[in-house]
């Protein structure tokens, strides 16, 4: 379900190439198979040196790099690539998973950080955000999804000509969802980017926030924009599933 929904939004991205550098065969298998099923072209490397070689000689759209690797660790690979002016977005995988390591990983030039064990939907959602980030470089002041419009300067949100009255946090939540329209956004991604905290909510608080937003966003309209992707997170998207997309 979650994977299917996510898959849909990357159709047409078949040309996207991803390199997975991971030494644990079963984790690699899990990631590679999942990514291939989601429509990516995936290459793999199982040690640090081989990974660096492939990453620096071939052209990839994103890298998934394990933190601990034989030969050369993941952070060194990314540091080396960044030193050579290679800015392929890189997602670091780690079994360590504390704030410490996240900071180190991001400092080394990683673009995102995911802690094992993780749900595949989480990985996929984050990779898609990384891929999108690559081409969305210019500064935007207006966001638009279907009949929903957001002005980032005046902080005004209008749907079908009707102004929506959002709290500051709801505004940021919607802004993030709109910036990643058509992509699955997980709960932890929302926490990290909207609330700016890295933590683990024990309850469904995010869902409550989302349902509040949904009240304002979709309640008085026929076609809901904000969808729940079960087992993964949320997605703001054009209301009607468009088979041509």
């Amino acid at each position: 379900m979650g994977v299917q929904a996510a898959q849909r939004c990357v159709q047409g991205a078949n040309e996207m190439r991803i390199l997975v550098i991971e030494d644990d065969a079963s984790v690699q298998e899990y990631i590679v198979r999942g990514l291939r099923e989601s429509g990516f072209t995936v290459d793999q490397a199982c040690d640090g040196k081989q990974g660096l070689l492939r990453a620096s000689t071939e052209d990839y759209d994103a890298l998934v790099v394990d933190r601990m690797l034989p030969g050369m660790d993941g952070l060194s690979i990314i540091r080396t690539l960044r030193g050579a002016d290679n800015h392929t977005p890189a997602l670091i995988l780690s079994a360590l998973g504390e704030v410490d390591d996240r900071v180190k990983g991001l400092k080394a030039g990683g673009d995102d950080y995911l802690v094992k064990p993780f749900a595949f939907a989480e990985l996929l959602a984050r990779i898609e955000v990384l891929l999108r980030r690559k081409d969305a470089s210019s500064a935007v002041t207006r966001l638009r999804v279907a009949d929903l419009e957001m002005d980032l300067l005046s902080h005004k949100v209008v749907r079908a000509g009707r102004a929506l009255n959002l709290q500051p946090r709801e505004f940021r939540l919607l802004e993030y969802l709109m910036k990643h329209a058509g992509q699955v956004v997980t709960r932890t991604m929302l926490l990290e980017n909207v609330w700016d905290y890295h933590f683990d909510p024990q309850t469904n608080v995010i869902d409550v926030h989302i349902s509040r937003l949904r009240q304002k966003l979709d309640k008085e309209f026929d076609r809901p924009l904000l969808k729940t992707v079960r087992g993964a997170g949320y997605m703001l998207d054009e209301p009607e599933p468009d088979p041509a997309r």
């Binding site: 379900m1 360590l96 998973g97 704030v99 410490d100 180190k104 749900a119 683990d200 024990q202």
Partner: peptide, 29 residues
């Protein structure tokens, strides 16, 4: 089942997190 697995993962993550905090390694935050 997805929900159930997510809950399990969350439990594991919480366990690991507590273990790491208790080990005292996470100081650079």
């Amino acid at each position: 089942m997805l929900q159930e697995s997510d809950d399990l993962l969350a439990t594991f993550n919480a366990l690991l997190r507590i273990a790491q905090i208790e080990a005292g390694g996470a100081r650079s935050g």
